[in-house]
Amino acid sequence: MKGVFILAKAVAEEKNKLNVRKMIEEKKNSASLGNFTEKFIPGTLFAIAAISVLTTIGIVVTLLSETIMFFREVPFLDFFTGTKLKPLGEDAVFGVLPLLTGTIISSAIAMLVAIPIGVMTAVFLSEYASEKLRRTVKPLLEILAGIPTIVYGFFAFTFVTPLLRSIIPGLEPTNILSPGIVMGIMIIPMVASLSEDAMSAVPNSMREGALALGATKLEVAWKVVVPAAISGIIASFVLGISRAIGETMIVTIASGSSKNFTFDITQSMQTMTAYIVEVTGGEAAAGTTLYYSLYAVAMTLFVFTLIMNLVAQYISRKFREEY
């Protein structure tokens, strides 16, 4: 009786035993869907990854094709050497120099604010501040970096301009100075954070070496840390310039739309970005010279910022000091 029971149990166990090899075989045969997915997925993902490349191609092709149309109507040299920009009316003239000076001057003002303050902030955070202080200040600066540019535009227009006008009597209600300064404030966190990263990457042994020779903290920072981190610091400047050139809303709001060719920072000037906003906002009819000028200006802007970004990448790769 007992023997039969054991036998029955053994048979049952044999039945329940997993035959792994057999299961794998079965699975392999039935998993045609799985195999299909396995082959299908890399292609799909590649197609998705290609969309970012397509975006770049899309930008270049749209800008280029319409820019070529523009240069059929306006000679290349006239565009880049013309000091007069009058896009509307019968006697429309398209010279980009007023927009270029507006862009360059506003970016220069911004960098005059952002570079010294940004670098000094970076030196303070990296060399002087305690770990605790650094951990409080850095997120606060990140808030400054995260504020939308439209808010800075509002700030420039309703606070900084009236403030500056009470100091500088000749300042126009819309001028290039105020948005330039506010753009600089917007870029401070970027310069500070990237420069601080570069300085923090300088090994402590170099600081300690200098300190042991009797250097003060300032001498360590200025003669050891900053030179060692210079590639990262300069790359942050270049990225800052690129950001300033491409910035749109602050200058659109606070600098008005005067297309005068001038170097007077108390006056209204238009930047390339602000011109794009103005022309598209006016719903320029497709096919007109005005419409094509939009693309020519955007192309100029795109090339400028692209060069700046490539320069920044080149600097930080080429001149990096490895320790």
């Binding site: 970012s52 770049t56 491409g246 749109t248 794009i276 906003v277 955007a298 795109f302 910022t305 700046m308």
Partner: peptide, 8 residues
């Protein structure tokens, strides 16, 4: 692409 101005 990250460096292209938003207006573009």
């Amino acid at each position: 692409l990250a460096g292209v101005p938003s207006v573009v």
